Lab assay of single mutants.
Amino acid sequence: MLDDRARMEAAKKEKVEQILAEFQLQEEDLKKVMRRMQKEMDRGLRLETHEEASVKMLPTYVRSTPEGSEVGDFLSLDLGGTNFRVMLVKVGEGEEGQWSVKTKHQMYSIPEDAMTGTAEMLFDYISECISDFLDKHQMKHKKLPLGFTFSFPVRHEDIDKGILLNWTKGFKASGAEGNNVVGLLRDAIKRRGDFEMDVVAMVNDTVATMISCYYEDHQCEVGMIVGTGCNACYMEEMQNVELVEGDEGRMCVNTEWGAFGDSGELDEFLLEYDRLVDESSANPGQQLYEKLIGGKYMGELVRLVLLRLVDENLLFHGEASEQLRTRGAFETRFVSQVESDTGDRKQIYNILSTLGLRPSTTDCDIVRRACESVSTRAAHMCSAGLAGVINRMRESRSEDVMRITVGVDGSVYKLHPSFKERFHASVRRLTPSCEITFIESEEGSGRGAALVSAVACKKACMLGQ
């Protein structure tokens, strides 16, 4: 009897593995994704193909990295998701002549009506938060230079001027797309009239992360975010950046690689679950690469896999709870928690219980395998993109072996128990001629924006502006 049951459990697990095998990517698959990513990057950089390229390769006008001589107080704003952060950054000489960066910050959550109302409502709310922060720190009387981390696709015309191309991540505030974001912020500050600010720089969160990590390690020339969304930036040779005049030196390019796949480059790798996630998203047909990796989508992918296993009578005796059938019910943090389970399955059992399920031991094991399959594919897909960037940098610099540091931020990278190990191992397999160091950014977005502002202020002083 026991043997029969054991055989049935083994057969069930084997069927589960057959279904989950769809998520496995072979090294040849990853090399294919990497080569296609490089081709799209090239198209994004070139003037004649930029418009139709899915990977936009947006110039950021960040050319210099901090040298350690900029000092002063800077205000930093960070808008990239449902939370908005205001930070005071003091850049100065530390002990023994070292450079020191001290920060104080406060988080504000953005109400739904500000995210989806008008641009005026959104930026009025942001300036209200700045006003509140300055009151708390008794700094209303000071006109501070301000660095703005704005983590949406922007076409820069200068370091302090950028046109919002399109909202992502659930934002829909009308009247912002096609307009200068810094102008919208300046107008809102003017409307309030109770404080003055000098907006000197606007950067993407990947750029802010790279600059913040450069402060720790001067070989950091790539910034990457794996959180709600997924994106990367890197220092490109100016001669390859056709959208900006000049051939000397390097400029940081914001790849906006989340949109890779929007022209069909990933079609052969998309599964039924991916198509369902895409169809029910706020932007169907867009940001397809990001939807395979980002935390906004990972939990939902797992939920759809679990429903398939229920329908195949391989999980929960073929019956799903009402909660499990509800879109968004299986949160991405559950994926991390399930994979963090120590082996007694308590954590998995508790999560499934909150979803109205009474799982068996085998159910718990199957749910864990589903989570591992989805998150491992995410790590491997992400590795193909980064390997594409790094191999490109090595080739354009004609280096036999390139040493490089990548600064990384984002909740999936930082909080998932195995993502970074799987990701690092896969990147290294795909970049055999590179020695890569990964560092995690601390308060990256805010500190990085302030350091970019410090560079901009120093330049302005040198130019006598």
Results as ranks from 00 to 15, higher is better:
residue 366 I to T: 12
residue 299 G to Y: 00
residue 189 I to S: 11
residue 61 Y to V: 05
residue 263 S to N: 11
residue 412 V to F: 09
residue 132 D to Y: 03
residue 328 G to T: 05
residue 354 T to Q: 14
residue 59 P to T: 06
residue 341 D to W: 04
residue 200 V to F: 12
residue 149 T to P: 04
residue 271 L to R: 03
residue 382 C to P: 00
residue 435 E to V: 13
residue 420 K to H: 01
residue 226 V to E: 00
residue 155 R to W: 09
residue 146 L to M: 06
residue 239 Q to N: 11
residue 176 A to W: 06
residue 118 T to M: 14
residue 139 M to L: 15
residue 209 T to N: 05
residue 80 G to F: 05
residue 91 V to R: 04
residue 461 C to H: 03
residue 357 L to H: 02
residue 218 H to W: 02
residue 347 Q to C: 15
residue 326 T to I: 09
residue 167 W to L: 12
residue 290 E to Y: 08
residue 153 P to E: 06
residue 47 L to R: 10
residue 314 L to Y: 12
residue 351 I to F: 04
residue 342 T to G: 12
residue 124 D to M: 03
residue 390 I to Q: 00
residue 383 S to K: 04
residue 254 N to Q: 10
residue 175 G to F: 10
residue 457 C to H: 06
residue 449 A to S: 11
residue 443 E to L: 08
residue 3 D to Y: 01
residue 225 I to E: 06
residue 132 D to S: 05
residue 369 R to L: 11
residue 48 E to K: 10
residue 328 G to E: 08
residue 10 A to F: 12
residue 413 Y to I: 11
residue 455 V to Q: 14
residue 96 E to T: 13
residue 155 R to E: 12
residue 236 E to Q: 00
residue 421 E to V: 08
residue 114 A to G: 09
residue 293 I to Y: 04
residue 356 G to D: 14
residue 353 S to V: 07
residue 286 Q to Y: 09
residue 440 E to A: 09
residue 17 E to K: 04
residue 56 K to C: 03
residue 312 E to M: 05
residue 346 K to R: 06
residue 6 A to Y: 12
residue 114 A to N: 07
residue 162 G to Q: 12
residue 73 D to F: 02
residue 356 G to L: 02
residue 413 Y to D: 01
residue 111 P to L: 03
residue 327 R to K: 15
residue 60 T to E: 03
residue 190 K to S: 12
residue 341 D to F: 04
residue 181 V to K: 05
residue 91 V to M: 12
residue 175 G to E: 11
residue 115 M to D: 08
residue 428 R to M: 09
residue 18 Q to S: 15
residue 180 N to V: 11
residue 184 L to Q: 11
residue 309 L to V: 02
residue 460 A to V: 11
residue 10 A to C: 14
residue 461 C to P: 05
residue 59 P to C: 00
residue 63 R to H: 08
residue 457 C to L: 14
residue 161 K to M: 12
residue 275 R to Q: 15
residue 27 E to I: 04
residue 445 S to M: 14
residue 385 G to M: 04
residue 249 G to P: 00
residue 272 E to Q: 02
residue 26 Q to V: 12
residue 340 S to Q: 09
residue 102 K to S: 05
residue 187 D to W: 02
residue 263 S to E: 13
residue 256 E to H: 03
residue 58 L to E: 11
residue 123 F to G: 10
residue 94 G to S: 07
residue 282 A to F: 15
residue 362 T to L: 07
residue 291 K to V: 01
residue 444 G to C: 07
residue 263 S to V: 15
residue 71 V to I: 07
residue 223 G to V: 05
residue 118 T to E: 12
residue 85 R to N: 15
residue 447 R to Y: 10
residue 241 V to A: 08
residue 70 E to N: 15
residue 104 K to M: 09
residue 12 K to S: 14
residue 96 E to C: 14
residue 418 S to V: 11
residue 207 V to P: 09
residue 440 E to C: 11
residue 165 L to S: 15
residue 151 S to P: 14
residue 104 K to I: 14
residue 108 Y to H: 03
residue 322 E to N: 09
residue 189 I to A: 06
residue 125 Y to E: 10
residue 260 F to Y: 13
residue 88 L to M: 07
residue 352 L to S: 05
residue 309 L to G: 02
residue 308 R to G: 06
residue 211 I to M: 11
residue 49 T to W: 02
residue 58 L to V: 13
residue 32 K to V: 10
residue 358 R to P: 02
residue 9 E to V: 09
residue 426 S to C: 12
residue 100 S to T: 08
residue 299 G to E: 02
residue 292 L to G: 03
residue 335 V to F: 03
residue 458 K to M: 06
residue 445 S to L: 13
residue 461 C to I: 02
residue 392 R to W: 05
residue 168 T to C: 15
residue 254 N to L: 08
residue 70 E to H: 10
residue 112 E to N: 14
residue 311 D to H: 06
residue 402 M to W: 14
residue 293 I to R: 00
residue 464 G to R: 06
residue 234 Y to S: 03
residue 62 V to E: 03
residue 440 E to H: 09
residue 13 K to S: 12
residue 93 E to F: 14
residue 316 F to C: 14
residue 267 D to F: 05
residue 427 V to T: 12
residue 230 C to Q: 04
residue 117 G to Q: 06
residue 8 M to A: 12
residue 222 V to E: 02
residue 340 S to F: 08
residue 95 E to T: 07
residue 452 V to Q: 11
residue 237 E to D: 14
residue 201 A to H: 03
residue 416 H to K: 00
residue 347 Q to V: 13
residue 315 L to H: 02
residue 355 L to Y: 05
residue 33 V to E: 01
residue 227 G to Q: 00
residue 186 R to G: 10
residue 179 N to G: 12
residue 450 A to H: 08
residue 281 S to V: 04
residue 125 Y to G: 02
residue 258 G to Y: 01
residue 225 I to R: 04
residue 215 Y to E: 05
residue 143 K to Y: 04
residue 430 L to Y: 02
residue 427 V to M: 09
residue 14 E to G: 14
residue 441 S to G: 05
residue 211 I to Q: 01
residue 342 T to I: 05
residue 154 V to W: 11
residue 446 G to I: 13
residue 117 G to S: 06
residue 51 E to A: 13
residue 449 A to Q: 06
residue 137 H to D: 03
residue 444 G to F: 06
residue 16 V to F: 15
residue 127 S to L: 04
residue 210 M to F: 07
residue 64 S to A: 15
residue 259 A to F: 15
residue 101 V to L: 15
residue 243 L to Y: 08
residue 44 G to P: 00
residue 42 D to R: 10
residue 79 L to V: 11
residue 3 D to A: 06
residue 278 D to Q: 02
residue 182 V to D: 15
residue 8 M to T: 14
residue 80 G to E: 08
residue 448 G to Q: 14
residue 376 T to G: 13
residue 237 E to N: 11
residue 7 R to S: 11
residue 209 T to D: 01
residue 275 R to W: 02
residue 382 C to N: 08
residue 145 P to K: 14
residue 91 V to I: 12
residue 329 A to D: 13
residue 136 K to P: 00
residue 460 A to Q: 12
residue 193 G to N: 03
residue 463 L to R: 14
residue 4 D to V: 03
residue 425 A to L: 01
residue 80 G to H: 10
residue 252 C to N: 00
residue 46 R to M: 15
residue 364 C to S: 09
residue 75 L to D: 05
residue 14 E to T: 08
residue 151 S to E: 11
residue 259 A to K: 14
residue 15 K to Y: 09
residue 123 F to L: 02
residue 106 Q to C: 12
residue 84 F to H: 10
residue 328 G to A: 14
residue 167 W to C: 11
residue 285 G to F: 01
residue 226 V to F: 01
residue 238 M to S: 05
residue 256 E to F: 07
residue 267 D to N: 09
residue 145 P to I: 06
residue 266 L to P: 05
residue 459 K to P: 02
residue 295 G to P: 08
residue 154 V to Y: 10
residue 106 Q to V: 14
residue 66 P to I: 15
residue 211 I to D: 00
residue 173 A to E: 11
residue 209 T to F: 02
residue 421 E to C: 09
residue 109 S to F: 04
residue 280 S to E: 14
residue 139 M to A: 09
residue 326 T to W: 05
residue 59 P to I: 00
residue 331 E to P: 08
residue 110 I to A: 01
residue 279 E to M: 11
residue 415 L to V: 06
residue 323 Q to L: 10
residue 253 V to L: 07
residue 82 T to I: 13
residue 413 Y to Q: 00
residue 427 V to E: 00
residue 165 L to A: 12
residue 335 V to Y: 02
residue 430 L to S: 02
residue 392 R to S: 02
residue 421 E to G: 13
residue 307 L to V: 10
residue 149 T to K: 07
residue 322 E to G: 13
residue 81 G to M: 07
residue 396 S to T: 10
residue 451 L to Q: 11
residue 223 G to P: 01
residue 20 L to G: 00
residue 122 L to N: 05
residue 62 V to G: 03
residue 203 V to C: 04
residue 151 S to I: 10
residue 53 A to W: 00
residue 356 G to P: 00
residue 313 N to D: 14
residue 82 T to L: 10
residue 464 G to H: 07
residue 16 V to K: 00
residue 44 G to R: 00
residue 358 R to G: 10
